[in-house]
Structure formats: structure tokens, C-alpha cells
């Protein structure tokens, strides 16, 4: 496939990079990413991946755009309030880059549908706001041998790590089991600076891009944490847990599991 002059212009800042070049840009155009959650993290991730020319982007979310989302979910506009988030997100992505294909999945993810959902994509971005979903995505990706980016944000803090099969710990190695409902606050209860989604969601997009172009080091075996109050990034090395329930030597989790959600997260908000 040869580039059109328009594509050369659109992607010139990528192609000119030694680490990307024409080959890397073509890999991005052949790639597919599933973004779960069109919220604070998913919004910037989706916009940057669309702009980068990732050929096929899936976006999964069951909610409609709410006024309280707009403080940080920059993929939605005021006029989108009430619209399904996946539709609003799709329109924004295609407005930036009509060359890509966007697939909308207006649904709640669960143990019964997650494996089918992720099966059609090369890389998964976890942009969810609650622990049951984060563990579900982790387990499904580990069981499917699929790379994914985990991230979380709250208040002035953010974190992310990348799982690549066989190359380091999974989310469950680090955190084992979801905390009981309401034991640990999520950002719908504790608040979050809007730009935090921009910082961390953009880093998730960065990891996806690097995964596809095969350059540099991914956050496999490391948790990157960011404190916006002190402006400190820390990359904490993560060991693997040999007895991890899902990626360890003798796994006990052989299929995705649903966990109970905190009552105050039921009406969303992250």
C-alpha cells in the first residue's frame, strides 16, 4: 500500500521520525485498538490514536454523555450531553481523522461478553473507573494472551502499567483481588483534576503506539505513577507473582469473573 500525498502530509510528523518512518506508520494503519470506557482516560487516548491513524478503533461504553463528564472527557462537547458516549466519541474521532474505522460498542462489559469483545483487537486500553472492571479486563487479556494498558486516576494522582503476555506481571500480580466495594474511593467519589485524564490517557495512547511501532521500552514490569501536586513521575519496578491467580504457574482463574460494584459507582461518574 502506497501513501497518498494527503496521507504523507497528515502523518508527516510521524514518518519523518527515524523510529516510525513509513514502516511504523503503516503498522499503525494496520493496527486495531479497543478502548474500554469513553471517559477521562479513554477520551484523550481515543483522540490521539485516531489522530495517529490507528486503522480500526473500538470504543465500548454504555453511558450517555452527562454534563459532569465535560470537565475532563474532552472527546465530548456540551452539545453532546444526552448522546450515547460511544456515538459522541466516534464523531469526534472521525472528525479528526475520517480515514480510520471506528467501531462503537454501546454495552456494559461483563464476564459473559468480554472475551468476544476483545478478541477482535490487537491492543486494549483500560479506561474504566472501577476495580471490578479493571480486574475483569486484566483477566480477560491474560486469558486471551492480549497486550493491554492499565491506568487509574484519582484526585491529583495517576498510574499506569502495560501488560504484554510473557513479558512481566499482570495487574493481578500487583493488586491480587479487588478491594471490597466502597473500601477504596474512585474518582466519582473523590474527585479528579480533569487534566489528569489528559496526562495518563495520553500516556496510554503512547504505550499503544510504541507497542505497534516496536520502539523503546514499554511499562511492562513497571508501574509509572504521577503526582501532579509535586510534579513527580516515578517508575516503580514490579516483580511478577509466581503464584498469581491468573498468570501464575498454577492459575485458579480460568475464565473471566464478575465482582460486585460499589453502590456509589453504579450510576457512573468517573
Amino acid at each position: 500500500m502506497a501513501f497518498t500525498n494527503e496521507q504523507l502530509e497528515r502523518y508527516s510528523r510521524h514518518i519523518i521520525l527515524q523510529e516510525v518512518g513509513a514502516g511504523g506508520q503503516k503498522r499503525l494503519m494496520d493496527a486495531s485498538v479497543l478502548i474500554i470506557g469513553a471517559g477521562g482516560l479513554g477520551a484523550p487516548a481515543a483522540l490521539y490514536l485516531a489522530a495517529a491513524g490507528v486503522g480500526r478503533i473500538g470504543i465500548a461504553d454504555a453511558d450517555a454523555v452527562d454534563l459532569s463528564n465535560l470537565q475532563r472527557q474532552v472527546i465530548h462537547a456540551t452539545a453532546d450531553v444526552g448522546k450515547p458516549k460511544v456515538q459522541s466519541a466516534s464523531e469526534s474521532m472521525l472528525a479528526i481523522n475520517p480515514e480510520i474505522t471506528v467501531e462503537t460498542h454501546r454495552m456494559y462489559v461483563s464476564a459473559s461478553n468480554i472475551l468476544d469483545l476483545i478478541a477482535g483487537y490487537d491492543f486494549v486500553i483500560d479506561g474504566t473507573d472501577n476495580f471490578p472492571a479493571k480486574f475483569l479486563i486484566n483477566d480477560a487479556c491474560v486469558l486471551s494472551g492480549k497486550a493491554f494498558s492499565h491506568a487509574g486516576i484519582i484526585r491529583f494522582q495517576g498510574q499506569l502499567m502495560t501488560y504484554v503476555p510473557g513479558e512481566g506481571p499482570c495487574y493481578r500480580c500487583v493488586f491480587r483481588d479487588p478491594p471490597p466495594p466502597d473500601a477504596v474511593p474512585t474518582c466519582s467519589q473523590a474527585g479528579v483534576i480533569g487534566a489528569m485524564g489528559g496526562v495518563i490517557g495520553s500516556l496510554q495512547a503512547m504505550e499503544a503506539v510504541k507497542y505497534f511501532i516496536g520502539q523503546g521500552e514499554l511499562l511492562t514490569g513497571a508501574l509509572l505513577t504521577f503526582n501532579a501536586l509535586t510534579m513527580e513521575f516515578r517508575k516503580v519496578r514490579l516483580p511478577r507473582r509466581a503464584d498469581c491467580q491468573v498468570c501464575g504457574a498454577h492459575p485458579t482463574i480460568l475464565e473471566p469473573v464478575d465482582y460486585a460494584l460499589a453502590a456509589c459507582d453504579l450510576d457512573g461518574g468517573g
Binding site: 500525498n5 514518518i15 519523518i16 518512518g21
Partner: peptide
Amino acid sequence: TDVVCPITFVKAKVALEE
């Protein structure tokens, strides 16, 4: 000749890459 700077170089670079 059908593109302008800086796409001129990008187009040449892509052709060289191939």
C-alpha cells in the same frame, strides 16, 4: 513536484524507505 515543503522530504524519505 506535486507537494510542498516539508512534505517534499517526507515523500522522498518514504520512497527511499521502500
